[in-house]
């Protein structure tokens, strides 16, 4: 799948800082670990019930800059680990497959923060299968995505198991619960 890294504005900002501001520039060149000052306030993350700390998920570069208005953009909050074409750009929706395709019964599940309510949601990255690649709005976000020997968090696998055609068309991001 094409490489379209999209995490975006904040990363670009960091790079610009690293490239142009002299002191940061020197630090960056030296490569010393520096701490990015949050440009946006850190969001509260609800984890009161079980006591699990999900706050770390709210502090990734993606989560800090994610938006909740436009689901055809790679920085839409629930796309924190999506890889592929957004079905919202292909005639489908965030949980809707475009005509002529079918959702796979299998997927992998990531965790993204909704900045509007501060909650961590479990997101099933469910591929729509059965037609040729939509190839629009290609995104490749990588929050907590890992390699194929740990498939339950890999976004490069064609998650079209159990569908009549394994041809990959696009990816949806379905809310399947809250991360407790």
């Amino acid at each position: 799948m094409p490489d379209h890294s999209s995490d975006a504005r904040f990363e670009r900002l960091l790079r610009r800082l690293a490239g142009h501001s002299s002191r940061r520039g020197i630090l960056a060149r030296l490569g010393a670990t520096i701490v990015a000052a949050p440009v946006f306030p850190l969001l509260p993350v609800s984890h009161a019930q079980s006591g699990k700390d999900r706050s770390v998920r709210g502090k990734t570069g993606f989560a800090r800059t994610a938006q909740t208005k436009d689901d055809t953009q790679c920085d839409y909050w629930r796309y924190c680990a999506i890889d592929g074409s957004l079905c919202t750009c292909c005639g489908g929706g965030v949980h809707t497959c475009p005509p002529g395709t079918e959702p796979s019964p299998t997927s992998w599940v990531g965790t993204c923060i909704n900045p509007d309510d501060g909650r961590a949601y479990l997101i099933a990255y469910r591929d729509c299968c059965g037609s040729s690649a939509c190839n629009r709005c290609n995104c490749d976000n990588t929050d907590r995505a890992t390699e194929i020997y740990r498939p339950s968090t890999n976004n490069d696998i064609i998650w079209c198991f159990g569908v009549s055609s394994m041809e990959y068309h696009c990816s949806t991001a379905v809310v399947v619960g809250t991360a407790e």
Partner: peptide
């Protein structure tokens, strides 16, 4: 240069 979870950069 980047933050962690930028492994495909």
């Amino acid at each position: 240069m980047g933050e962690y979870w930028s492994q495909k950069e």
